[in-house]
């Protein structure tokens, strides 16, 4: 069976946090559920697992690529059309530094944006299981199950935890 998800909705953060304990008692630990909220809550507020990511790598890769492109562009265009000025070097390093600085930072920004989208697992074509009440202040607990019996157990656990609604 492919992974299936079920969503429990809770009207308060406290009720949602308690529900994660009930899920754990039912054998559905940190790896089985995710919390959906309408705004950021302090990390670990619902006993969810720590989120590992590699976002910090992206700006460095982008900066290196931006730097390389900027060097190639500035050096390449000067060599392609040399402007000989009073015996000075063809490659004007102070000017190249400025354009390279901008190129490096532009690369870092572009790759950071790509990193955020990639690491946030976006774009996501299908929203479900989802409920618009989440942006109205409800807390959603999405439980992902591998087997049908787990799905039943998750639903029972969510109802036992006094979920306001359970959506399959």
């Amino acid at each position: 069976m492919a992974n299936k998800s079920i969503l429990g909705l809770f009207s308060t953060a406290e009720a949602a946090a308690d529900a994660t304990d009930v899920l754990a008692e039912a054998g559905l630990g940190q790896d089985s559920f995710d919390v959906l909220t309408g705004c950021p809550y302090p990390e670990g507020a619902f006993g969810e697992r720590e989120q590992k990511h590699h976002l910090y790598v992206f700006p460095f890769i982008g900066a290196m690529m931006g730097f390389t492109v900027a060097i190639l562009l500035t050096a390449g265009t000067q060599i392609a059309w040399p402007l000989v000025t009073g015996g000075k070097p063809i490659l004007a390093l102070p000017a190249m530094t400025i354009i390279t600085y901008e190129g490096t930072l532009l690369g870092a920004v572009l790759f950071t944006i790509l990193g955020i989208i990639f690491e946030s697992r976006l774009p996501r074509p299908i929203l479900s299981p989802y409920d618009t009440r989440i942006t109205e202040g409800y807390i959603g607990i999405e439980v992902t199950c591998e087997a049908e019996w787990q799905l039943e157990a998750a639903e029972n656990a969510l109802r036992k935890a006094n979920a306001d609604d359970v959506i399959r």
Partner: peptide, 19 residues
């Protein structure tokens, strides 16, 4: 982009702002 407000998405959103 299919934003749902998962813990991971919010966490990255906060880091993104600072980064």
């Amino acid at each position: 982009l299919g934003w749902r407000g998962t813990t991971r998405q919010w966490r990255l959103q906060l880091i993104a702002g600072i980064l």
